[in-house]
Structure formats: structure tokens, C-alpha cells
Design a protein around this nucleic acid. Sequence first.
DNA 1: AGAAAAGTAGAACGATCGTTCTATCCGAGT
DNA 2: ACTCGGATAGAACGATCGTTCTACTTTTCT
Lengths: 188, 188
Amino acid sequence: MGTKREDIIDAANRAFYRDGFAEVGIDRVVGEANVALGTLYRHFKTRSEVITAALQRRHGDFLHALEGAGEAGKGADCVLELFDVLEAWSTQQGGNGCFFLRAAADYPADDSIQNAARSHKREYLAVIEQRLLQGGWSKGQAEQLGSTIFVLLEGAVAAAFTLGDGAAVTTARNAAARILGSAKPESG
Amino acid sequence: MGTKREDIIDAANRAFYRDGFAEVGIDRVVGEANVALGTLYRHFKTRSEVITAALQRRHGDFLHALEGAGEAGKGADCVLELFDVLEAWSTQQGGNGCFFLRAAADYPADDSIQNAARSHKREYLAVIEQRLLQGGWSKGQAEQLGSTIFVLLEGAVAAAFTLGDGAAVTTARNAAARILGSAKPESG
DNA sequence: AGAAAAGTAGAACGATCGTTCTATCCGAGT
DNA sequence: ACTCGGATAGAACGATCGTTCTACTTTTCT
């Protein structure tokens, strides 16, 4: 059905993520989506709605990628697999940093964009904590370790963007492994 | 002398960092700088030059803040003080994430902006490695640990922005302390 | 088949934006 | 006193952008 709508959202995701919100306009999005201008404005009331839809779609895709791997792991492995998913995801997307942070920073006055970014990060953190619980850590440990893993994952995408390669994800993964190893679920 | 120029750069830093590149124009900068439009264009040839100057100024201020603290520490302390400086800096600036990453993401086709962001991060990483050397770690350890500390620092500002409070910096600092503790310079 | 909905190409509009220009004014230096 | 470089306010311009509109064609549904 709404395949045109999906095309627009896909194109918006690619264009905005690759070239930045400041440099791509609606015309670039319709051009990359192979869609008429009127079609976009039939599906979305405003540019802000396009961006919000792109964020929501990316959130769904990312969560799907997260849940598609590492659910069977035990101990630290099911947490560390988050880094593997992130590395594949980041390089596949182009390694231009976190799309949600970029959108939130560019449109601090846009409530729907702020909401999309905030709720994404909340759910992301929740997934991390759930993996820690699944790995055998207690609820209190999961909250504490979850924040640390979250910082490492966020730092990984930021550093990968800055340094231009995905080695930072491996660095973050190693750090996470060391920290998880020194706070084993058996010993807590 | 060039106090008007400084006013413009200051205002650009505040406005762009607070409200994002997509939402603030040259008129907002001149308005916040209490300066005439012609004055801005006497000092800068283009908007891109204003942004680049803002980045360079912020780089200088940040490095100055870094070098102003923790130079006397020994061992892990002189590295961990980077987190303390970052926390003060981040909350003082408003906690809207890394200005350089945001600029680099928004203007991927602007060479001077890309250069300013890239060289900032390079120097930042160099400061971290220098602190590790100062703390007694070997050159090889400094490079390896430096990447990890860098990831933690980058993750700290990103997470602080997302979660809205500075607790992420403390989380990152604790993680850094644990990692530095398990790779003591005496034992390497 | 026929009607309703969705899509297309492109013109058009109003607003905004980056940039330039004009005219005037102020302050410092020989 | 006269000039000259920097500052000011604001008009002006061309480009772009987001959004709407028109006219036409295609798809979809019953």
C-alpha cells in the first residue's frame, strides 16, 4: 500500500543523515525518493513531520536490528553483541554519528522531533538493561551497568564518526567486556 | 581592538550551540552580538567563515580549560581530571552535545568546517594521550588507553545531552577509573 | 465501466536567508 | 580641522526554501 510514503521516509533518512538537516531541503528528498512534490505533501503536513517520521522509522529499524541478534547469548555475551550490532549498523548507515542526537540538536524547539529522539534513547537504554537482566545481573546492577554500557555505545558512534573508522566500536566493546568481567553476575 | 569581532564569534557560539545551525541565521547572530550586519560582513566573508571561527574559538577555549586543571596530578588522577573539566565545561555550555560533531554532521561538504572539527578531535585525543604519558603509562599503553578514554569522554557528552543531566559524566568517569585501575602503569 | 483517490509535473507564492549596497555617523591620528 | 577606517541602520537583491495550487494522468476499488 503506502509504498510511496515509505519511499519518502527512506529517502529522507538517507539524505538527511548523509548531508545534514541544514543542507538538504524538501526538493532533495522528493528527488531522491522519485516522487512528486505534491505526493510528499499529501502524506506529510510539513517538513518537520517528514523528519519525525524518518526518526521513528530509524528507531524501528534499529530496534529490529538489535532484537534480531544476541538474544540467545548468556552472561556478558548477550550484552557485548549489542556492540557488534552497532558496528554493523553504523558502518552500513555511513558512520555519520547518531541521527537522533543530530536531529535533537538541530531542532531544539520542535517538540515532536525532541520527543522522537528522547523516546528512542529511553528505549535504547531499556534494551541494554534488559540484556543485562537476561545476562544474569540483578536489577540494581542492570541499572548501574546499563548507564555505563550506554555511555560506551554512544561514545562508540561519536568516536567512529570523528575518527572516520569503526575501530572505536571495538575499543568500546573491549572496555565493556572488561567492565562486565569485573562485575560478574555470579559475584554480585 | 577587534572586540567587535570577538562579540560576533561569542554570539555565534552561543546562538548556534543553543538553537542549532538549522534554526539560527546571520541576523540572529548579529542581533545577539549587538552588532550591525555590515560589521559582520566586514570581518567575515561568509556565514561559513563565522561558523569556522566559532569552532576555532571554542577549540581554543576548551583546550585552555583542559590545560588549566589537572596538570599536577599523578597516576590516574591527571587523566580522570579530564572528566571533571568536561563536566564543568558541558554544564556551563548548556549540555547540548558536542559542538564540533554537530557542525561536522551538518556541513559535510564544507572543508573548513570539517577541518576545524577534525583537528579539534585530533588535538583532544593528543591531550588525552599526553596525560596518560604524564600519568606514567607507556607510549603503547597511552595510545590504547587513550582511545578508550576518548570513547568514554565522547559518550559522556552525548549521553548527558540525551538524558538531560550530567550524571553520565560521572558514570563515564567511574568506568575510566576502573579501566585505568586494571591497567596500572606500574603493572605494565 | 466509472468514480474516487493517489500520483505527476511544474508553476506560483510568500517568507526567509545570505549577501551587498547606500547613506550616515563616530572616533582617533597627523 | 580634516580625513579615514570602522560602525550603524536599513533598504535592496537574488536565491532558495517550504508550501500551495492547477491541470492532467494513473491507479485502485466496487
